[in-house]
Nucleic acid binder design. Structure first.
Lengths: 234, 234
DNA sequence: TGTTCGGGTGACGAGACTGTGACGGCAGGA
DNA sequence: TCCTGCCGTCACAGTCTCGTCACCCGAACA
Protein backbone atom coordinates (compact mmCIF):
# COMPACT_ATOMS: atom_id res chain seq x y z
CA UNK A 1 0.00 0.00 0.00
CA UNK A 2 2.64 2.51 1.02
CA UNK A 3 6.37 2.53 0.58
CA UNK A 4 8.30 2.86 3.80
CA UNK A 5 11.98 3.49 4.32
CA UNK A 6 13.39 1.86 7.45
CA UNK A 7 16.68 3.22 8.74
CA UNK A 8 18.48 1.22 11.37
CA UNK A 9 21.92 -0.33 11.73
CA UNK A 10 20.66 -3.32 13.70
CA UNK A 11 19.70 -5.94 11.20
CA UNK A 12 17.41 -7.68 13.67
CA UNK A 13 15.31 -4.60 14.07
CA UNK A 14 15.13 -3.97 10.36
CA UNK A 15 14.00 -7.50 9.74
CA UNK A 16 11.42 -7.44 12.47
CA UNK A 17 9.93 -4.17 11.34
CA UNK A 18 10.03 -5.16 7.68
CA UNK A 19 8.21 -8.36 8.43
CA UNK A 20 5.38 -6.59 10.16
CA UNK A 21 5.14 -3.88 7.56
CA UNK A 22 5.04 -6.35 4.71
CA UNK A 23 2.39 -8.31 6.51
CA UNK A 24 0.26 -5.16 6.38
CA UNK A 25 0.84 -4.81 2.68
CA UNK A 26 3.51 -2.14 2.71
CA UNK A 27 6.59 -2.04 0.56
CA UNK A 28 9.81 -1.79 2.54
CA UNK A 29 13.14 -0.24 1.66
CA UNK A 30 15.91 -0.24 4.20
CA UNK A 31 19.22 1.43 4.83
CA UNK A 32 21.73 0.85 7.58
CA UNK A 33 23.91 3.89 7.15
CA UNK A 34 22.88 7.44 7.96
CA UNK A 35 24.69 8.93 5.01
CA UNK A 36 22.75 6.75 2.61
CA UNK A 37 19.35 7.94 3.81
CA UNK A 38 18.96 11.11 1.78
CA UNK A 39 20.04 9.58 -1.55
CA UNK A 40 17.81 6.58 -0.93
CA UNK A 41 14.88 8.77 0.08
CA UNK A 42 15.26 10.81 -3.10
CA UNK A 43 15.58 7.68 -5.19
CA UNK A 44 12.68 5.72 -3.79
CA UNK A 45 10.39 8.57 -2.69
CA UNK A 46 8.93 6.74 0.29
CA UNK A 47 5.64 7.69 1.91
CA UNK A 48 7.17 7.51 5.37
CA UNK A 49 10.56 7.08 6.99
CA UNK A 50 11.24 5.15 10.20
CA UNK A 51 14.49 6.58 11.46
CA UNK A 52 16.67 5.25 14.28
CA UNK A 53 18.43 7.97 16.13
CA UNK A 54 21.58 5.97 16.81
CA UNK A 55 23.36 5.43 13.56
CA UNK A 56 26.94 4.82 12.52
CA UNK A 57 28.56 7.61 10.63
CA UNK A 58 25.97 10.30 11.11
CA UNK A 59 23.47 11.02 13.82
CA UNK A 60 19.77 10.41 13.18
CA UNK A 61 18.97 13.98 14.17
CA UNK A 62 21.39 15.23 11.55
CA UNK A 63 19.82 12.97 8.98
CA UNK A 64 16.44 14.30 9.89
CA UNK A 65 17.65 17.85 9.52
CA UNK A 66 19.04 17.09 6.09
CA UNK A 67 15.82 15.48 5.02
CA UNK A 68 13.92 18.57 6.11
CA UNK A 69 16.34 20.86 4.35
CA UNK A 70 15.90 19.16 1.00
CA UNK A 71 12.83 20.13 -0.96
CA UNK A 72 12.60 16.68 -2.45
CA UNK A 73 12.24 15.01 0.92
CA UNK A 74 10.99 17.66 3.30
CA UNK A 75 7.39 16.61 3.06
CA UNK A 76 8.03 12.97 3.96
CA UNK A 77 6.81 12.17 7.46
CA UNK A 78 9.39 10.71 9.82
CA UNK A 79 8.95 8.47 12.83
CA UNK A 80 11.93 8.48 15.13
CA UNK A 81 13.19 5.55 17.15
CA UNK A 82 14.99 6.63 20.32
CA UNK A 83 16.69 4.66 23.08
CA UNK A 84 15.42 5.00 26.61
CA UNK A 85 18.89 6.14 27.59
CA UNK A 86 18.43 9.40 25.67
CA UNK A 87 18.08 12.42 27.90
CA UNK A 88 14.68 14.02 28.06
CA UNK A 89 15.84 17.22 26.39
CA UNK A 90 16.95 15.18 23.45
CA UNK A 91 13.56 13.57 23.14
CA UNK A 92 11.82 16.92 23.42
CA UNK A 93 13.98 18.20 20.61
CA UNK A 94 13.01 15.31 18.44
CA UNK A 95 9.43 15.57 19.32
CA UNK A 96 9.18 18.98 17.82
CA UNK A 97 10.64 17.96 14.52
CA UNK A 98 9.53 14.43 13.88
CA UNK A 99 5.97 13.43 13.10
CA UNK A 100 6.10 10.84 15.84
CA UNK A 101 8.62 8.96 17.92
CA UNK A 102 8.94 5.74 19.78
CA UNK A 103 11.35 4.65 22.49
CA UNK A 104 13.22 1.40 22.25
CA UNK A 105 12.44 -1.29 23.05
CA UNK A 106 9.06 -0.96 21.38
CA UNK A 107 6.39 -3.46 20.49
CA UNK A 108 6.05 -3.94 16.74
CA UNK A 109 2.32 -3.63 17.21
CA UNK A 110 2.67 -0.12 18.57
CA UNK A 111 4.97 0.89 15.76
CA UNK A 112 2.43 -0.36 13.25
CA UNK A 113 -0.31 1.63 14.92
CA UNK A 114 1.75 4.78 14.91
CA UNK A 115 2.76 4.28 11.30
CA UNK A 116 -0.88 3.80 10.39
CA UNK A 117 -1.80 7.00 12.20
CA UNK A 118 0.93 9.08 10.59
CA UNK A 119 0.12 7.76 7.15
CA UNK A 120 -3.54 8.47 7.62
CA UNK A 121 -2.74 11.97 8.83
CA UNK A 122 -0.44 12.72 5.93
CA UNK A 123 -2.58 10.98 3.38
CA UNK A 124 -3.48 13.20 0.55
CA UNK A 125 -7.08 13.92 -0.17
CA UNK A 126 -7.70 13.33 -3.79
CA UNK A 127 -10.57 14.64 -5.82
CA UNK A 128 -11.73 14.15 -9.35
CA UNK A 129 -10.15 16.60 -11.75
CA UNK A 130 -13.30 16.36 -13.79
CA UNK A 131 -16.72 15.63 -12.51
CA UNK A 132 -19.34 14.52 -14.94
CA UNK A 133 -23.03 14.38 -14.19
CA UNK A 134 -25.03 13.64 -17.27
CA UNK A 135 -24.10 16.26 -19.82
CA UNK A 136 -22.54 18.51 -17.24
CA UNK A 137 -18.78 18.47 -17.04
CA UNK A 138 -17.13 20.33 -14.23
CA UNK A 139 -13.45 20.87 -14.92
CA UNK A 140 -11.80 21.76 -11.66
CA UNK A 141 -8.42 22.13 -13.27
CA UNK A 142 -9.53 24.93 -15.56
CA UNK A 143 -12.26 26.07 -13.23
CA UNK A 144 -14.88 25.83 -15.89
CA UNK A 145 -18.17 24.18 -16.64
CA UNK A 146 -19.25 22.79 -19.95
CA UNK A 147 -22.43 21.15 -21.06
CA UNK A 148 -22.20 18.64 -23.87
CA UNK A 149 -18.81 20.06 -24.69
CA UNK A 150 -20.02 23.64 -24.84
CA UNK A 151 -18.22 25.96 -22.46
CA UNK A 152 -20.48 27.94 -20.12
CA UNK A 153 -18.94 31.17 -18.93
CA UNK A 154 -19.56 31.54 -15.25
CA UNK A 155 -18.48 34.06 -12.68
CA UNK A 156 -16.60 32.85 -9.67
CA UNK A 157 -19.70 33.00 -7.50
CA UNK A 158 -21.78 31.04 -9.94
CA UNK A 159 -19.02 28.52 -10.30
CA UNK A 160 -18.74 27.99 -6.57
CA UNK A 161 -22.48 27.67 -6.36
CA UNK A 162 -22.84 25.00 -8.99
CA UNK A 163 -19.73 23.24 -7.75
CA UNK A 164 -21.31 22.97 -4.33
CA UNK A 165 -24.56 21.73 -5.75
CA UNK A 166 -22.90 19.24 -8.05
CA UNK A 167 -20.67 17.93 -5.27
CA UNK A 168 -23.72 16.13 -3.95
CA UNK A 169 -26.21 15.73 -6.75
CA UNK A 170 -29.80 14.85 -5.94
CA UNK A 171 -29.27 15.95 -2.38
CA UNK A 172 -30.95 18.97 -0.84
CA UNK A 173 -28.62 21.83 0.02
CA UNK A 174 -30.20 24.22 2.49
CA UNK A 175 -29.93 27.95 2.04
CA UNK A 176 -27.64 28.35 4.99
CA UNK A 177 -25.50 25.51 3.72
CA UNK A 178 -25.06 27.22 0.37
CA UNK A 179 -24.58 30.65 1.89
CA UNK A 180 -21.88 29.16 4.06
CA UNK A 181 -20.17 27.22 1.29
CA UNK A 182 -20.19 29.98 -1.31
CA UNK A 183 -20.17 33.17 0.67
CA UNK A 184 -18.74 31.98 3.96
CA UNK A 185 -21.69 33.50 5.77
CA UNK A 186 -22.05 31.97 9.18
CA UNK A 187 -25.44 33.35 10.01
CA UNK A 188 -28.49 32.64 7.95
CA UNK A 189 -28.64 36.03 6.30
CA UNK A 190 -32.02 36.25 4.77
CA UNK A 191 -31.87 38.20 1.57
CA UNK A 192 -32.52 37.61 -2.07
CA UNK A 193 -28.82 37.12 -2.84
CA UNK A 194 -28.90 33.37 -3.14
CA UNK A 195 -32.10 33.39 -5.19
CA UNK A 196 -30.65 35.92 -7.57
CA UNK A 197 -27.53 33.91 -8.18
CA UNK A 198 -29.56 30.75 -8.64
CA UNK A 199 -31.55 32.56 -11.27
CA UNK A 200 -28.46 33.86 -13.04
CA UNK A 201 -27.04 30.39 -13.03
CA UNK A 202 -30.22 28.90 -14.43
CA UNK A 203 -30.31 31.54 -17.12
CA UNK A 204 -26.77 30.80 -18.20
CA UNK A 205 -27.47 27.09 -18.28
CA UNK A 206 -30.36 27.73 -20.62
CA UNK A 207 -32.59 24.75 -20.97
CA UNK A 208 -30.36 22.77 -18.65
CA UNK A 209 -31.17 25.20 -15.87
CA UNK A 210 -33.97 22.88 -14.98
CA UNK A 211 -31.39 20.60 -13.44
CA UNK A 212 -31.31 23.03 -10.55
CA UNK A 213 -34.39 22.24 -8.56
CA UNK A 214 -36.09 24.17 -5.78
CA UNK A 215 -37.63 22.58 -2.77
CA UNK A 216 -39.76 25.10 -1.03
CA UNK A 217 -38.65 25.89 2.53
CA UNK A 218 -35.93 23.29 2.20
CA UNK A 219 -33.35 24.44 -0.29
CA UNK A 220 -31.96 23.76 -3.72
CA UNK A 221 -30.53 20.69 -5.37
CA UNK A 222 -28.81 19.59 -8.52
CA UNK A 223 -30.84 16.90 -10.20
CA UNK A 224 -28.85 14.42 -12.26
CA UNK A 225 -32.09 13.62 -14.04
CA UNK A 226 -34.76 16.24 -14.41
CA UNK A 227 -37.94 15.28 -12.68
CA UNK A 228 -40.86 16.73 -10.84
CA UNK A 229 -40.02 17.53 -7.28
CA UNK A 230 -42.42 16.42 -4.61
CA UNK A 231 -41.89 18.07 -1.27
CA UNK A 232 -41.25 15.67 1.51
CA UNK A 233 -42.70 16.44 4.88
CA UNK A 234 -41.24 19.62 6.30
CA UNK B 1 -21.82 3.74 -8.95
CA UNK B 2 -22.43 4.39 -12.60
CA UNK B 3 -25.60 4.45 -14.62
CA UNK B 4 -25.52 2.11 -17.57
CA UNK B 5 -27.95 1.86 -20.44
CA UNK B 6 -28.29 -1.67 -21.82
CA UNK B 7 -29.75 -1.96 -25.31
CA UNK B 8 -30.81 -5.41 -26.49
CA UNK B 9 -33.99 -6.94 -27.77
CA UNK B 10 -33.33 -10.29 -26.14
CA UNK B 11 -34.78 -10.12 -22.68
CA UNK B 12 -32.57 -12.93 -21.42
CA UNK B 13 -29.46 -11.01 -22.30
CA UNK B 14 -30.74 -7.82 -20.72
CA UNK B 15 -31.61 -9.64 -17.54
CA UNK B 16 -28.31 -11.41 -17.37
CA UNK B 17 -26.31 -8.27 -17.94
CA UNK B 18 -28.45 -6.23 -15.58
CA UNK B 19 -28.00 -8.76 -12.85
CA UNK B 20 -24.26 -8.67 -13.08
CA UNK B 21 -24.13 -4.90 -13.34
CA UNK B 22 -26.35 -4.40 -10.34
CA UNK B 23 -24.28 -6.85 -8.39
CA UNK B 24 -21.33 -4.51 -8.99
CA UNK B 25 -23.33 -1.58 -7.72
CA UNK B 26 -24.31 -0.03 -11.04
CA UNK B 27 -27.69 1.39 -11.89
CA UNK B 28 -29.21 -0.16 -14.99
CA UNK B 29 -31.60 1.27 -17.53
CA UNK B 30 -32.63 -0.85 -20.46
CA UNK B 31 -34.27 -0.45 -23.82
CA UNK B 32 -35.24 -3.09 -26.34
CA UNK B 33 -35.92 -0.91 -29.32
CA UNK B 34 -33.31 0.94 -31.31
CA UNK B 35 -35.46 3.99 -31.83
CA UNK B 36 -35.90 4.43 -28.11
CA UNK B 37 -32.18 4.60 -27.40
CA UNK B 38 -31.51 8.24 -28.13
CA UNK B 39 -34.49 9.61 -26.16
CA UNK B 40 -33.68 7.32 -23.28
CA UNK B 41 -30.00 8.25 -23.37
CA UNK B 42 -30.92 11.92 -23.26
CA UNK B 43 -33.39 11.42 -20.47
CA UNK B 44 -31.26 9.30 -18.19
CA UNK B 45 -27.79 10.54 -19.17
CA UNK B 46 -26.03 7.23 -18.62
CA UNK B 47 -22.30 6.95 -18.02
CA UNK B 48 -22.00 4.14 -20.53
CA UNK B 49 -24.13 2.37 -23.12
CA UNK B 50 -23.98 -1.34 -23.92
CA UNK B 51 -25.40 -1.57 -27.41
CA UNK B 52 -26.38 -4.69 -29.28
CA UNK B 53 -25.83 -4.40 -33.00
CA UNK B 54 -28.84 -6.47 -34.00
CA UNK B 55 -31.94 -4.57 -33.10
CA UNK B 56 -35.48 -4.51 -34.38
CA UNK B 57 -36.52 -1.33 -36.13
CA UNK B 58 -33.15 0.29 -36.48
CA UNK B 59 -29.64 -1.05 -36.78
CA UNK B 60 -27.26 -0.68 -33.83
CA UNK B 61 -24.73 1.02 -36.08
CA UNK B 62 -27.31 3.62 -37.02
CA UNK B 63 -28.16 4.12 -33.39
CA UNK B 64 -24.50 4.58 -32.61
CA UNK B 65 -24.21 7.14 -35.37
CA UNK B 66 -27.16 9.07 -34.01
CA UNK B 67 -25.73 9.02 -30.52
CA UNK B 68 -22.48 10.42 -31.86
CA UNK B 69 -24.28 13.06 -33.89
CA UNK B 70 -26.17 14.42 -30.91
CA UNK B 71 -24.24 16.81 -28.70
CA UNK B 72 -26.17 15.64 -25.68
CA UNK B 73 -24.99 12.06 -26.05
CA UNK B 74 -21.84 12.15 -28.12
CA UNK B 75 -19.54 11.93 -25.16
CA UNK B 76 -21.10 8.79 -23.72
CA UNK B 77 -18.86 5.75 -24.21
CA UNK B 78 -20.41 2.82 -26.05
CA UNK B 79 -19.61 -0.88 -25.90
CA UNK B 80 -20.95 -2.80 -28.86
CA UNK B 81 -22.20 -6.36 -28.80
CA UNK B 82 -21.77 -8.11 -32.13
CA UNK B 83 -22.64 -11.61 -33.30
CA UNK B 84 -19.88 -13.87 -34.55
CA UNK B 85 -21.78 -14.10 -37.81
CA UNK B 86 -21.06 -10.46 -38.61
CA UNK B 87 -18.65 -9.94 -41.47
CA UNK B 88 -15.21 -8.69 -40.67
CA UNK B 89 -15.73 -5.34 -42.41
CA UNK B 90 -18.67 -4.74 -40.21
CA UNK B 91 -16.66 -5.34 -37.13
CA UNK B 92 -13.87 -3.13 -38.37
CA UNK B 93 -16.40 -0.38 -38.86
CA UNK B 94 -17.59 -0.72 -35.35
CA UNK B 95 -14.19 -0.91 -33.93
CA UNK B 96 -13.39 2.54 -35.15
CA UNK B 97 -16.44 4.13 -33.60
CA UNK B 98 -17.20 2.27 -30.43
CA UNK B 99 -15.09 2.46 -27.31
CA UNK B 100 -15.00 -1.31 -27.14
CA UNK B 101 -16.84 -4.29 -28.53
CA UNK B 102 -17.57 -7.86 -27.66
CA UNK B 103 -18.71 -10.77 -29.79
CA UNK B 104 -21.64 -12.92 -28.77
CA UNK B 105 -21.74 -15.22 -27.05
CA UNK B 106 -19.73 -13.55 -24.35
CA UNK B 107 -19.06 -14.30 -20.73
CA UNK B 108 -20.68 -11.81 -18.35
CA UNK B 109 -17.39 -11.69 -16.55
CA UNK B 110 -15.61 -10.40 -19.60
CA UNK B 111 -18.27 -7.80 -20.24
CA UNK B 112 -17.95 -6.60 -16.66
CA UNK B 113 -14.20 -6.30 -17.06
CA UNK B 114 -14.52 -4.34 -20.27
CA UNK B 115 -17.15 -2.08 -18.79
CA UNK B 116 -14.89 -1.47 -15.83
CA UNK B 117 -12.02 -0.63 -18.13
CA UNK B 118 -14.03 1.76 -20.28
CA UNK B 119 -15.50 3.52 -17.27
CA UNK B 120 -12.10 3.87 -15.73
CA UNK B 121 -10.70 5.20 -18.95
CA UNK B 122 -13.54 7.59 -19.58
CA UNK B 123 -13.56 9.25 -16.21
CA UNK B 124 -11.62 9.79 -13.08
CA UNK B 125 -8.55 11.82 -13.47
CA UNK B 126 -7.72 12.49 -9.89
CA UNK B 127 -5.98 15.50 -8.52
CA UNK B 128 -4.99 16.62 -5.08
CA UNK B 129 -7.74 18.49 -3.29
CA UNK B 130 -5.07 20.47 -1.55
CA UNK B 131 -1.65 21.30 -2.78
CA UNK B 132 0.94 22.40 -0.32
CA UNK B 133 4.22 23.99 -1.28
CA UNK B 134 6.06 25.33 1.71
CA UNK B 135 3.74 27.78 3.45
CA UNK B 136 1.45 27.95 0.47
CA UNK B 137 -1.71 25.94 0.58
CA UNK B 138 -3.85 25.81 -2.51
CA UNK B 139 -7.33 24.59 -1.71
CA UNK B 140 -8.94 23.55 -4.96
CA UNK B 141 -12.16 22.62 -3.26
CA UNK B 142 -12.81 26.09 -1.97
CA UNK B 143 -10.85 27.76 -4.74
CA UNK B 144 -8.71 29.64 -2.33
CA UNK B 145 -5.11 30.16 -1.41
CA UNK B 146 -3.75 30.53 2.08
CA UNK B 147 -0.28 31.17 3.36
CA UNK B 148 0.57 29.85 6.80
CA UNK B 149 -3.12 29.49 7.43
CA UNK B 150 -3.94 33.05 6.44
CA UNK B 151 -6.45 33.33 3.64
CA UNK B 152 -5.33 35.40 0.66
CA UNK B 153 -8.18 36.93 -1.27
CA UNK B 154 -7.52 36.52 -4.93
CA UNK B 155 -9.52 37.31 -8.02
CA UNK B 156 -10.30 34.48 -10.37
CA UNK B 157 -7.56 35.56 -12.76
CA UNK B 158 -4.97 35.71 -10.04
CA UNK B 159 -6.09 32.34 -8.75
CA UNK B 160 -5.76 30.72 -12.15
CA UNK B 161 -2.38 32.30 -12.56
CA UNK B 162 -0.92 31.05 -9.32
CA UNK B 163 -2.59 27.69 -9.77
CA UNK B 164 -0.85 27.29 -13.08
CA UNK B 165 2.47 28.34 -11.63
CA UNK B 166 2.11 26.10 -8.59
CA UNK B 167 1.07 23.13 -10.68
CA UNK B 168 4.72 22.81 -11.67
CA UNK B 169 6.83 24.55 -9.09
CA UNK B 170 10.42 25.41 -9.90
CA UNK B 171 9.69 25.05 -13.57
CA UNK B 172 9.74 27.92 -16.03
CA UNK B 173 6.37 28.84 -17.48
CA UNK B 174 6.71 30.88 -20.64
CA UNK B 175 4.56 33.91 -21.26
CA UNK B 176 2.59 32.24 -24.00
CA UNK B 177 2.09 29.21 -21.82
CA UNK B 178 0.59 31.34 -19.08
CA UNK B 179 -1.45 33.43 -21.46
CA UNK B 180 -2.84 30.25 -22.89
CA UNK B 181 -3.54 28.59 -19.55
CA UNK B 182 -5.11 31.57 -17.85
CA UNK B 183 -6.62 33.59 -20.68
CA UNK B 184 -6.99 30.98 -23.36
CA UNK B 185 -5.08 33.18 -25.76
CA UNK B 186 -3.74 31.13 -28.62
CA UNK B 187 -1.40 33.74 -30.04
CA UNK B 188 1.36 35.29 -28.09
CA UNK B 189 -0.36 38.59 -27.51
CA UNK B 190 2.30 40.92 -26.40
CA UNK B 191 0.94 43.37 -23.92
CA UNK B 192 1.46 44.26 -20.30
CA UNK B 193 -1.46 42.15 -19.14
CA UNK B 194 0.51 39.26 -17.77
CA UNK B 195 3.06 41.47 -16.07
CA UNK B 196 0.35 43.50 -14.44
CA UNK B 197 -1.36 40.45 -13.01
CA UNK B 198 1.94 39.05 -11.84
CA UNK B 199 2.54 42.28 -10.01
CA UNK B 200 -0.92 42.29 -8.44
CA UNK B 201 -0.37 38.73 -7.33
CA UNK B 202 3.01 39.51 -5.83
CA UNK B 203 1.52 42.49 -4.03
CA UNK B 204 -1.24 40.39 -2.50
CA UNK B 205 1.23 37.75 -1.42
CA UNK B 206 3.21 40.41 0.41
CA UNK B 207 6.60 39.19 1.46
CA UNK B 208 5.89 35.79 -0.04
CA UNK B 209 5.56 37.39 -3.45
CA UNK B 210 9.22 36.67 -3.86
CA UNK B 211 8.28 33.06 -4.49
CA UNK B 212 7.21 34.18 -7.93
CA UNK B 213 10.40 34.54 -9.87
CA UNK B 214 11.12 36.19 -13.19
CA UNK B 215 13.49 34.79 -15.73
CA UNK B 216 14.23 37.42 -18.27
CA UNK B 217 13.16 36.50 -21.79
CA UNK B 218 12.06 33.10 -20.52
CA UNK B 219 9.07 33.46 -18.30
CA UNK B 220 7.95 33.17 -14.71
CA UNK B 221 8.13 30.41 -12.18
CA UNK B 222 6.97 29.53 -8.70
CA UNK B 223 9.94 28.84 -6.49
CA UNK B 224 9.34 26.39 -3.68
CA UNK B 225 12.36 27.91 -2.01
CA UNK B 226 13.29 31.50 -2.59
CA UNK B 227 16.67 31.84 -4.22
CA UNK B 228 18.60 33.92 -6.62
CA UNK B 229 17.73 33.15 -10.19
CA UNK B 230 20.55 32.65 -12.59
CA UNK B 231 19.56 32.78 -16.21
CA UNK B 232 20.33 29.62 -18.03
CA UNK B 233 21.52 29.87 -21.60
CA UNK B 234 18.87 31.55 -23.71
C1' DT C 1 -61.92 31.08 -2.28
C1' DG C 2 -58.79 34.12 0.03
C1' DT C 3 -54.58 34.70 2.65
C1' DT C 4 -49.90 34.12 3.67
C1' DC C 5 -45.36 33.11 2.76
C1' DG C 6 -41.39 31.88 0.19
C1' DG C 7 -39.21 32.01 -4.02
C1' DG C 8 -38.74 34.20 -8.92
C1' DT C 9 -37.68 38.22 -11.55
C1' DG C 10 -35.99 42.60 -13.17
C1' DA C 11 -33.62 46.83 -12.39
C1' DC C 12 -30.02 49.45 -10.43
C1' DG C 13 -25.96 51.49 -8.42
C1' DA C 14 -21.65 50.78 -6.05
C1' DG C 15 -17.58 48.80 -6.36
C1' DA C 16 -14.43 45.36 -8.12
C1' DC C 17 -11.85 43.66 -11.85
C1' DT C 18 -9.44 43.82 -16.01
C1' DG C 19 -6.69 45.14 -20.05
C1' DT C 20 -4.05 48.81 -21.93
C1' DG C 21 -0.76 52.33 -22.80
C1' DA C 22 2.78 55.36 -21.05
C1' DC C 23 6.76 55.64 -18.72
C1' DG C 24 10.73 54.35 -16.01
C1' DG C 25 14.38 51.31 -14.64
C1' DC C 26 17.47 47.67 -14.94
C1' DA C 27 20.23 44.01 -17.04
C1' DG C 28 22.97 42.43 -20.61
C1' DG C 29 25.52 43.22 -24.63
C1' DA C 30 28.16 46.31 -27.71
C1' DT D 1 29.96 53.81 -21.08
C1' DC D 2 25.89 53.75 -23.87
C1' DC D 3 22.16 51.32 -26.11
C1' DT D 4 18.56 48.12 -26.53
C1' DG D 5 15.15 45.23 -25.06
C1' DC D 6 12.48 43.43 -21.50
C1' DC D 7 10.07 43.89 -17.36
C1' DG D 8 7.98 46.64 -13.42
C1' DT D 9 4.86 50.07 -12.18
C1' DC D 10 1.12 53.20 -12.41
C1' DA D 11 -3.13 55.39 -13.66
C1' DC D 12 -7.35 54.98 -15.94
C1' DA D 13 -11.53 53.83 -18.18
C1' DG D 14 -14.65 50.37 -19.67
C1' DT D 15 -16.91 46.46 -18.25
C1' DC D 16 -18.40 43.10 -15.25
C1' DT D 17 -20.13 41.46 -11.02
C1' DC D 18 -22.62 41.57 -6.98
C1' DG D 19 -25.97 42.49 -3.40
C1' DT D 20 -30.21 44.68 -2.62
C1' DC D 21 -34.76 46.24 -3.27
C1' DA D 22 -39.38 46.28 -4.97
C1' DC D 23 -42.65 43.74 -6.90
C1' DC D 24 -44.79 39.55 -8.84
C1' DC D 25 -46.32 34.87 -8.77
C1' DG D 26 -47.64 30.49 -7.31
C1' DA D 27 -48.00 26.96 -3.71
C1' DA D 28 -49.81 25.63 0.59
C1' DC D 29 -53.19 26.00 3.74
C1' DA D 30 -57.30 27.55 6.18
Amino acid sequence: MSRILVVDDEKDIVELVSLHLQREGHEVVSVGNGLAVLPMAVKTAPDLIVLDIMLPGIDGVQVHRRLRADTRTRHIPVIMLTARAQTNDRIAGLESGADDYLTKPFSPRELMLRIGAVLRRSQKVVMLAEQRIGEFLLDRKNMSLSISGKLIELTITELKLITTLMANPDVIHTRSELLSAVWGYADDTHSRTLDTHIKRLRDKLGDHGRHIGTLRRQGYLFQSVIQELADADA
